[in-house]
């Protein structure tokens, strides 16, 4: 008798493999993109199934949502470019021998890795044990947030630098190679968009802020919240409520760096009250975490939105 839980796992895994396979091996960008977004959603389910609700939220918002939006952007760009009638002839495939060798090696790799991974997932490591015992009496309730903002806060800090660097890279492209806007406002706004936004705005704001607030005690946090707020911004950008501008205003730049800046300042300032950077002070640690996390949320939301927008700045557009 197969347990129902195992049946679910089996279905999930088969789904993941099937969809990932058809996404990366399919013809056509659009098809691959849509399949990849479905893959992201299945992945979110898998995270939930493997007791990682924080990841499920992040995957749904970032992995499936924003990556999907970015991919669709790329598809739209290609589609607009090729409207002249040029056929998609880019995919000059490598030879059959190469494919066969690659396939054979991949199958060997899969078998070897599967055996290795299976044999490794048993023990409780020293770092995990330490994190558990230290985390029990921690002032933050959610163990993942404890690791992200305290034990491995330095990683989180540097990861914000990675996010900022991606945006600076996009800025170079925008500034030096002028391309038309990907999302020009439509001449006639569809009648249902305004009611959508009036309902979606408060809901998404509320959900975003809830995720931020809940993050210290239960699943959620700066990344999930930032991604949701960025998604709201994407809606505004797509419906012409936000229009691209040629410069990043000082206010926008401040929001983009505030998270990383506050985090770094705290890292250095910790040397005043302790002998280790990034050590939280005895008093007011919780408010400090909330402050930093709020700044992180703002920066993440703004950076992700600007990465999607493909412009240096954004301004309020005319609503019809």
């Amino acid at each position: 008798m197969i347990e129902p839980g195992f049946l679910l796992d089996l279905l999930l895994c088969l789904g993941l493999l099937g969809i990932a396979g058809s996404a990366v091996l399919s013809r056509g960008q659009f098809r691959a993109t849509v399949l990849f977004m479905v893959f992201g959603l299945l992945m979110a389910l898998t995270w939930a199934r493997l007791q990682a609700p924080d990841l499920a939220l992040a995957e749904a918002a970032i992995g499936a949502g924003l990556t999907g939006a970015l991919l669709l952007n790329a598809c739209k760009a290609t589609y607009t470019r090729r409207q002249a009638g040029e056929a998609a002839s880019q995919d000059d495939a490598p030879g059959t021998v190469f494919r066969l060798v690659a396939a054979g090696l991949s199958i060997l790799l899969a078998a070897g890795l599967a055996w290795l991974m299976y044999s490794l997932t048993v023990a409780d490591g020293p770092a995990a044990a330490m994190a558990r015992s230290e985390g029990e009496s921690h002032f933050l309730g959610n163990p993942v947030t404890v690791v992200l903002l305290d034990f491995r806060a330095y990683d989180t800090l540097l990861e914000m630098a990675v996010l900022l660097l991606a945006l600076i890279g996009v800025h170079i492209l925008i500034r030096h190679y002028r391309l038309p806007d990907l999302h020009p406002p439509a001449p006639v706004s569809p009648p249902m968009l305004t009611p959508l936004l009036t309902v979606a705005t408060p809901l998404m704001l509320m959900a975003g802020l809830y995720l931020f607030w809940a993050g210290s005690q239960s699943p959620g946090g700066a990344f999930q919240s930032g991604a949701l707020l960025a998604a709201l911004g994407v809606l505004y950008r797509l419906t012409g409520r936000l229009v691209p501008t040629g410069t990043a205003s000082p206010g926008l730049r401040l929001i983009l760096v505030i998270g990383l800046a506050l985090f770094s300042l705290f890292a250095c300032a910790a040397l005043i009250w302790s002998s280790a950077p990034l050590q939280y002070p005895e008093t007011a640690a919780y408010s400090l975490v909330l402050l930093i996390e709020f700044a992180l949320t703002l920066s993440i939301a703004a950076t992700l939105l600007m990465l999607f927008s493909g412009s240096l700045g954004l301004a309020r557009g005319q609503t019809s």
Binding site: Q51, A52, G63, L66, F151
Partner: peptide, 19 residues
């Protein structure tokens, strides 16, 4: 019980991947 360190690593990894 669930180990939070890999979860935090993956969260960081997802953000880096999207960047």
């Amino acid at each position: 019980g669930v180990d939070a360190i890999p979860q935090a690593m993956v969260l960081t990894g997802i953000v880096i991947a999207v960047s």
